[in-house]
Simulated assay, not measured.
Amino acid sequence: MKKIILSIFLIANSLFLTSCAPAIQGASTVSSVISISNDRRSIGKILDDKTIALRLLTWSSEDSTLSDAHLNFMVYNKIVLITGEVPTPEMRVYASKQAQRQVPKISQIFNEIKLGPSSGLLSRAKDSTITIQVELLFQNQEVFHPTHVRVMTEDQVIYLMGALTKREADMAAKTAAKAKGAYKVVKLFDYLKTRPKAEIERDRLKALEDKRRAELEKQQAELEAKKADLQRQIRALGSNTTGTNFSPE
């Protein structure tokens, strides 16, 4: 029990820290709390990803070699996406290699760093707006749960990460592309052959519960209708009795 409480505390704490750090994107801007029950990663993997992201943030902010660079990180299942801008090709290579050295447990790095000056506040604000749009759009579809996909936008390019089936991934990309101002969508998914069995079973039980609840509501509505009809009949009988005159012969 103590381990579970500690794990939840660490997740909440890391979420608070990342919300204060603009260099780490991908944590939901619509909801600041991860829905662990719907996340396809275990609590341990979520903690690992948060730890990796925090270490990369700390390193990139302290490394003097990157003083003229602007870097963002998004992590899912120990796979790291690095975006941003650096002034030279050498610094671009350095950032990728050094990130791996800083956190050896990283399994893969996607280096999407561009050459050029650091983006301005207006550009970053536009990117944040696009990310929020995508997250809101994800709420209005039923193919996958919004927490299954992490979103980062850099220079109007939307990057998506998560563990999804092909059908879910296609829907995520199609939905994200509807965001106004987006230039393109890049899918960096860990593809699943099928949805997790536990998830399917949970949905089955939920469907049964919804059906049971609907039947109870239907029965309740029928009872209320019968009750209302009976009350009308009683009122009608009372009205007829009051209006009847009896005269003696």
Rank of each mutant, 00 (worst) to 15 (best):
M1P: 05
M1W: 11
I4S: 11
S7R: 01
S7W: 01
A12Y: 13
L15T: 01
L15K: 01
S19D: 14
I24K: 04
I24S: 06
S28P: 00
V30T: 13
I34H: 04
I34E: 02
I36C: 10
N38S: 14
S42A: 06
L47Y: 08
T51R: 13
A53D: 03
L54S: 13
L57A: 11
W59V: 02
S61E: 13
S64E: 14
L66P: 00
L66S: 03
L66A: 00
S67W: 02
S67Q: 15
I79H: 12
V80S: 07
V86A: 06
T88E: 08
T88R: 02
M91S: 01
R92Y: 03
V93Y: 00
A99D: 06
R101E: 09
Q102E: 15
V103H: 04
F110C: 04
N111D: 03
N111V: 01
K114G: 00
S119E: 13
K126A: 13
S128D: 07
I132P: 02
F138K: 07
E142N: 14
V143R: 10
F144Y: 05
V149D: 00
Q156I: 03
Y159S: 01
M161L: 12
L164N: 05
K166Q: 13
R167T: 11
T175D: 04
T175S: 06
A176P: 02
A179Q: 01
V185D: 05
F189C: 06
K193H: 12
T194G: 07
P196G: 10
E199G: 11
D203L: 15
L205I: 09
A207F: 08
E209R: 10
E209I: 03
E217A: 15
Q219N: 14
Q231D: 15
R232H: 14
A236R: 14
G238P: 03
T241E: 08
T241V: 11
N245S: 10
